[in-house]
């Protein structure tokens, strides 16, 4: 946190709301994430955390409110456009391109960085080779970071669970985002895997100069790496602030553990 904090925040969410029929899934959420921050979004099941992610990435259009990414209003844009603006995500239930190789999964992420036309691809014009070479080396670099380079020819669906999670992060990073959204990255992981994941997330933040917003249920991970958090309950903000303080908040403890 240096002079970056004084500039425009990476993400500014104002009065974000969405309702499905009569149900207000998210109601008046405000959130500000600074550049380079590791921010957590937590809350009990059904609190609306993934819905927030879906609004941030354009899968759902918010009923009201606004989303400002690095000074640019991205509210209501289509998912592909929002990705091009600089938001990438992973999914709670892993959504890899399961019948494609590990390398190709990452190359799909690089799709918009090294463009060439259909005709250049079909006729194998020089631009194709140049772009493909560049893509391959970039993709392999990313895979090396996540220790996946040994499996690059394998189908994504054949990877063990923990590596699939890593591949999802690598693929998201390939789109060269400013803001990375991780939806329950530690779900289904054992303590050792979680610990290595925490290192990975920190590494990504430091080495890729990334701002990260993550949803997580694993409190050890949240308290271990998140600098600030927002707690959601029934679609509404319950608490917000520095992680250690918020987790002591009686209202938060009640929401998680009951009376």
């Amino acid at each position: 946190m240096s002079e970056n904090t004084t500039k425009t925040p990476m993400l500014e969410v104002k009065q974000l709301s969405i309702s499905f029929g009569g149900l207000k899934a998210v109601d008046g959420l405000n959130m500000t994430i600074d550049k380079g921050q590791l921010y957590g979004l937590i809350g009990p099941n059904g609190a609306g955390k993934t819905t927030v992610f879906n609004m941030l990435t354009g899968v759902y259009k918010p009923t009201s409110g606004s989303i400002i990414l690095d000074g640019e209003n991205i509210t209501g844009k289509a998912p592909a456009q929002i990705n091009c603006c600089g938001v990438a995500r992973t999914f709670q239930n892993i959504r890899l391109f399961s019948n494609m190789s590990v390398l190709d999964n990452v190359k799909v992420g690089l799709h918009n960085q090294m463009k060439y036309s259909v005709i250049e691809g079909a006729l194998r014009l020089p631009r194709y080779f140049k772009a493909e070479r560049e893509m391959n080396s970039r993709a392999e670099e990313l895979l090396k970071v996540f220790e996946l380079e040994g499996e690059k020819e394998q189908l994504a669906s054949n990877l063990p669970y923990g590596k699939q999670r890593k591949l999802e992060i690598a693929r998201a990073l390939a789109t060269n985002p400013k803001l990375l959204l991780l939806d329950e990255p530690a779900a289904g992981m054992n303590p050792n895997e979680t610990a290595s994941l925490m290192d990975t997330i920190r590494f990504v933040r430091d080495n890729f100069d990334m701002t990260i917003l993550l949803i997580e249920h694993d409190m050890k991970l949240v308290s271990g790496i998140c600098e600030e958090i927002t707690v959601l309950n029934f679609g509404q903000e319950l608490a917000q602030g520095v992680t250690s303080e918020v987790l002591q908040n009686p209202a938060v403890v009640t929401a998680y553990l009951g009376e």
Partner: peptide, 12 residues
Amino acid sequence: RDNYIAAESMGI
């Protein structure tokens, strides 16, 4: 083909 939503979120 493999995952419509993920493809969209990759900027395709």
